Simulated assay, not measured.
Amino acid sequence: MAAIGCIDLKTGTLSFAGVGNITTRIFAAEYNRVLSKDGIIGYMMNRPSEQIIKLCRRDVVMLYSDGIKEHFEQHDCPGLLTGTAEEIAQRVMDTFAKGDDDSSCLIVRLIK
């Protein structure tokens, strides 16, 4: 799996492309989920397509691997999106990691 993203702070947009089992979600006033293409890097891979999403101040962008429970909501973990990006990532790992697979989580909180 692989994903690449770029946040343009001037325009407030996220440009994203991904392949494989990586979930990208934006927690904001409006729920948004960014889709990665199915595939395995170097084997059976569809051509990634760029997605562009408008972000707003205080949005939380979350990328996580398949070692994290795919479907969860904010109400499943009260206070999920409070604190620093590091604290949010740790909360996701502690609460939603499957335990039988490697897991990773990246959090970006827009403060500008």
Rank of each mutant, 00 (worst) to 15 (best):
A29M: 13
T82Q: 15
G99C: 12
E73G: 11
I52M: 13
D66L: 00
L80D: 11
K112T: 11
E50N: 06
P48S: 02
F16S: 02
I7P: 02
Y31C: 12
E30M: 09
E86K: 08
E73P: 08
L14G: 01
M1I: 04
Y64K: 00
D66T: 02
D59S: 00
T95Q: 10
H71T: 10
T23Y: 04
D59E: 03
T23L: 05
E50W: 11
F16M: 09
I41L: 15
G83E: 02
K69M: 09
L80I: 07
L106C: 09
A97T: 13
E70I: 09
N21C: 06
V92F: 01
I40L: 15
E73Y: 12
C6A: 13
S36L: 03
D38N: 10
G79T: 07
E50C: 09
F27N: 02
I52H: 04
M44W: 15
T82H: 08
L81E: 07
G83V: 08
L14E: 03
I52E: 10
E73R: 11
Y64L: 06
M1E: 09
G99E: 12
T13R: 08
V19Q: 03
F72V: 02
R47F: 09
A28V: 06
L14T: 03
E50Y: 03
A17E: 04
C105T: 07
D66I: 01
S15A: 14
R109G: 04
Y31G: 13
R57Y: 07
V19T: 08
L110R: 06
E73H: 12
I4R: 08
D8H: 07
L80Y: 02
T95H: 07
M45L: 11
Q90A: 11
E30L: 06
N32V: 10
D102Y: 00
G79H: 05
Y64F: 15
N21G: 08
L81Y: 05
R109L: 05
L110C: 04
T84H: 09
K54V: 12
E70L: 14
L81R: 00
T24Q: 04
L35Q: 15
N32I: 09
G12L: 00
R58V: 04
F16V: 04
R109M: 06
I7S: 03
R58N: 13
